[in-house]
Each structure stands twice: as structure tokens, then as C-alpha cells.
Design a protein around this nucleic acid. Structure first.
Length: 205
DNA sequence: TGTTGGATCAACT
DNA sequence: GTTGATCCAACAC
């Protein structure tokens, strides 16, 4: 030890096949890597939200199994990307075993590699804030419906553990939803400045 | 076939 | 604090 070499360890299937609230919190500080034909973009996750099962009214699976949410019913470790508000995409990571629909929405991240590409994808971003919001993150990375259903243990879009330690995780209610607003299933790295919706940071817990 | 509202963001007042 | 942009899934008829 002590050499300072950073190990890049891809998260394997088992990481995702666990309870969604555990996966959500463990994703903070992990690196999302997008290898687009050799062009590498990576970001460190700082803000996530959990959407869990048909009993969660805010989860897309609350309406039962449909073509749109089908991927959430499969095993964890796949991407669920959907289009919203006519102009944005949201990137989610499917969790838990096949048959149980759940996912973690990636709401915010810190740009690490490929910032030039993010600037090309999102020239209007203010103050280098390319990835502090779910719609912005997808725009900066260039994620769209073509990437829906991708295996995140593959070589195009995947997550890595680079031994980054998140010291303080804050927990609040989810953002932008109208149903089940009491569940505190939003988690973020309290030491990052790149969290979306900087207000609403209420009670710690 | 038509209506409605959404896991957003930026630009307003 | 409010609103417009703009698509599509879900549901009503």
C-alpha cells in the first residue's frame, strides 16, 4: 500500500442485485464512465434518488409492467433512460433481482474526465455546471434513448470504484415528484458543491 | 383519436 | 415564485 496508484475496479453484477437503498448510498462517490468509441467521459456521483417497486407511487413501475418500464423488471445493473418534459432524459441504474422493479436515478455528479466533450454536448452550461441535475447530466454525457437497457457491467457505460471516500451522506425527500413526497430516498454527498436544487437541504438524519 | 401531466431546466417577474 | 419549451406514455373515450 501507500503507492498512491488508484485502482479502477468496475462494479459487478452483485453490486446492483442488492436492496435499492443500499445500492443508492453506495453509488455516491463511485465513477460513472462512458466510453463512446474511445472517447472517455467520467463523472463522480454526488446525488441519487431511489425509486422502489410497484408500491412506490412515484416509481414508474407503480402502474405495473409496461413497455416503458420493462427494463426495471429485469436484473440490476442495466440502464433505464427515459425522456421527460419534451426535452430531457433521465439516467437510472436498475437495482435488485429480476422480477422486482426498482432503480436509482442519478441526479448529480462532478465532471472528472472528458470535460471538453461535455462542453461540446452542452455549450450553454453555466459556470462549468454540466452535470448538477438529471437532465443536465444526460445532456453533457450525450445519453439518450439509444442507451436505454444497456448492461452496465459491459464496456461502454459502466461504474467504477476508484476508492473515493464520501465522508458525509445527507438524506432528504425526493425532488420534483408529486407523489410519496415523504419518503427520504434522496442521498447526496454533503461535501460536494455540485448538488442539484441547492435549497431543500433541510434536516440531516 | 384525444387529453393530460411528468423523477427538468432556464428565463422570467 | 412562476412559466414556457416540447415529447410521449398512459389512460379515457
Amino acid at each position: 500500500m501507500s503507492s498512491g496508484v488508484i485502482i479502477h475496479k468496475k462494479l459487478d453484477r452483485d453490486f446492483y442485485l442488492r436492496p435499492t437503498l443500499e445500492v443508492a448510498q453506495d453509488l455516491l462517490g463511485k465513477y460513472l464512465v462512458y466510453n463512446n468509441n474511445g472517447q472517455i467521459i467520467s463523472v463522480r456521483l454526488v446525488e441519487v434518488e431511489a425509486y422502489i417497486g410497484e408500491d412506490d407511487p412515484a416509481c414508474h413501475a407503480a402502474v405495473g409492467r409496461t413497455a416503458r418500464n420493462e427494463i426495471m423488471y429485469g436484473p440490476g445493473g442495466f440502464s433505464y433512460i427515459y425522456f421527460i418534459y419534451g426535452m430531457y432524459f433521465c439516467f437510472n441504474i436498475v437495482t435488485e433481482s429480476a422480477g422486482y422493479p426498482a432503480a436509482v436515478l442519478i441526479r448529480g455528479a462532478e465532471p472528472i474526465e472528458g470535460i471538453e466533450i461535455m462542453r461540446e454536448n452542452y455549450p450553454d452550461a453555466k459556470n462549468g455546471r454540466y452535470t448538477d441535475g438529471p437532465g443536465k447530466l444526460c445532456k453533457a454525457l450525450g445519453l439518450n434513448r439509444e442507451k436505454n437497457g444497456l448492461d452496465l457491467t459491459g464496456n461502454s457505460l459502466y461504474l467504477e470504484n476508484r476508492e473515493y471516500k464520501v465522508n458525509r451522506i445527507k438524506k432528504t425527500t425526493r425532488i420534483g415528484i408529486k407523489k410519496a413526497t415523504k419518503r427520504k430516498w434522496r442521498f447526496f454527498d454533503a461535501d460536494s458543491g455540485l448538488v442539484s436544487v441547492s435549497k431543500k437541504i433541510s434536516l440531516d438524519n
